[in-house]
Amino acid sequence: MEESPAAKLTCRELDVLRLLVHGLSNRLIARRLDISEKTAKNHLSSIYMKIGATDRTQAALYARDVGLIGPGEAAPPVPAFTPVPKDDAPPAGPTLTARERGVLRLLARGFSNRLIARHLGISEKTVKNHLSSIYMKIGATHRTQAALYAQCVGLTS
């Protein structure tokens, strides 16, 4: 029986990953764990390699998928907002356009702005504009929060 990638992480790497899921920056992770920013960055690089992620968004989504949340600890809070409507559902809560939902789905799958642009046949600048609009509508401040929101409301399926 093969062990999961999460089982290969050290205790410190698990701590870093749990803080990452909460949306903390490298600086805040370092302060919380009383380590240098460089050490936090090195831990993240090691985590990415071990779990097969390419960036913090993929790592955060992975951590949520496998339940890497401490005992008795609730899942990280998602900003208070109403779920995004499905493509065929009537709008409720923050109304994202069909294109914004498409951008958010790809973001939640870990695509970079460049790959989102290529996949949708739009410019990177347009992707950035859509992301700014999405962040404002759902109350996110960065792509990891937006990806976790998308997962929470079922846009990743």
Rank of each mutant, 00 (worst) to 15 (best):
E2H: 06
S4T: 08
P5T: 13
A7K: 14
A7I: 06
A7Y: 03
C11F: 07
R12L: 12
R12D: 08
R12G: 03
L14I: 13
D15W: 04
D15H: 03
V16P: 01
L17D: 02
L17N: 09
V21Q: 05
G23H: 13
S25I: 11
S25N: 14
R27G: 02
R27C: 00
I29K: 00
A30N: 03
R31L: 12
R31W: 00
R32G: 02
L33Y: 12
I35A: 07
I35S: 05
I35G: 04
S36A: 09
S36V: 03
T39M: 10
T39E: 12
A40G: 03
A40I: 07
H43M: 12
S45I: 07
S45E: 09
I47F: 10
M49Q: 12
I51H: 05
G52C: 04
R56V: 01
R56M: 09
A59M: 10
A59C: 11
A60P: 03
A60T: 02
A60S: 15
A60V: 04
A63N: 07
R64F: 06
D65E: 15
G67Y: 02
P71S: 11
P71H: 13
G72Y: 14
A74C: 09
P76Q: 08
P77L: 11
P77W: 05
P79N: 03
T82K: 02
V84T: 14
D87M: 10
D87N: 12
D88R: 15
D88K: 15
A89W: 13
P91M: 14
A92L: 08
G93V: 09
P94I: 10
T95M: 11
L96T: 03
T97M: 05
T97A: 12
R99H: 01
R99P: 00
R99G: 01
E100R: 05
R101G: 01
G102Y: 02
L104G: 02
L104R: 05
L104S: 06
R105G: 01
R105P: 00
R105Q: 14
R105N: 11
L106K: 06
L106G: 00
L107V: 08
L107F: 05
L107C: 04
L107G: 00
G110V: 14
S112F: 03
N113A: 11
R114V: 15
R114D: 08
I116S: 07
I116F: 03
A117K: 14
A117Y: 15
H119L: 05
L120H: 13
G121D: 12
G121A: 12
I122S: 11
K125T: 12
K128G: 07
N129W: 04
N129I: 04
N129E: 10
S132P: 00
K137S: 04
I138R: 00
T141P: 02
T141G: 09
T141Y: 08
R143L: 00
Q145V: 03
Q145K: 11
A146R: 02
A147L: 06
A147N: 04
L148W: 06
Y149T: 06
Q151T: 01
C152Y: 14
G154H: 15
G154Y: 15
G154T: 08
L155V: 10
S157W: 04
